[in-house]
Amino acid sequence: MAKVELVPLRSWDDFFPGSERFAKPDFTDMTRWNNRVVSNLLYYQTNYLVLAIAVFLVVGFLNPLGMFTAMAVVSAVFLGSVWAGENRAVIKNFKRQNPTVFVIAVMVASYMLISLLGSVMTFMTAITLPLTLIAAHASFRLRNMKNKLENKMEGAGLKRSPMGIFLEALGQQEENLQKIQTFLEGKVKE
């Protein structure tokens, strides 16, 4: 098994070039859209981490207690959902069949708990803003050849990254890994 490595920070020209490298996703083909998002999340993960840290620092400076509360609640809900997904068959099957709905459910549960604790604006700013920016970029950014190659290496287990582990915990990498294994098995038989 490959060791976990943080991918390099992509240049600004690669991360946010002109409008020719962005296109509206095809909402009718969910598999293709999901592949684009997963591929971009893996390829630009360090850029996304820098973006999230910048927003966290600004919000944390403005409201440190609210930021700590929001981070603790989201972490607890995420860890609880990963544990439940691994140890409860019903949740594991739901996560595998509806990965996007599962992620949305985790976010809604986090929001509801944070609203009880009174840190809703911190949550909305510190958590939702970077996630929205990341989801928008990953959805609209077209993939390039390097991007596709990195995704295949991650899916085949030749390379491990923090985002790959995170996506695997959410059940997003299993489908890609199965496609790669099927492809490789077909090549071995030939």
Results as ranks from 00 to 15, higher is better:
F56P: 01
L57M: 10
L177R: 08
L79R: 13
A136E: 14
L51K: 03
P17L: 02
S81A: 13
F16C: 04
N98D: 11
P25K: 06
T125V: 05
W83H: 15
V7R: 07
T125H: 11
T46V: 06
E174K: 13
L79G: 11
G80K: 11
L41G: 00
F16L: 12
L177P: 01
A72S: 02
G66R: 04
K146P: 05
S75R: 12
W33Y: 09
E154C: 04
V55H: 00
A156R: 00
I134Y: 02
L42G: 01
L167Q: 02
P162K: 09
Q97Y: 15
K3E: 13
R160L: 14
E150Y: 06
Q45L: 04
L116F: 10
G155R: 02
Q181A: 10
I104K: 08
E168G: 15
A2R: 09
A76F: 09
F102T: 09
V73Y: 01
N87R: 07
Y43E: 01
Q173N: 15
V58N: 06
A70V: 12
A76R: 12
N144Q: 12
P162W: 11
L149N: 02
V82W: 03
G60K: 01
N93F: 08
F68D: 05
M1P: 14
S39R: 04
Q181P: 02
V74D: 00
T125E: 06
E5C: 10
W83R: 13
E20Y: 09
I165L: 12
N87W: 04
T46M: 06
F22M: 10
E5V: 11
R32D: 11
N47W: 07
G155L: 02
F27A: 06
N40G: 01
A136L: 14
T31N: 14
I127T: 00
E154F: 00
A169S: 14
I180H: 00
A23D: 09
I91V: 11
R36G: 02
T28G: 05
N176I: 12
I180T: 07
A105W: 05
K146E: 11
M145K: 08
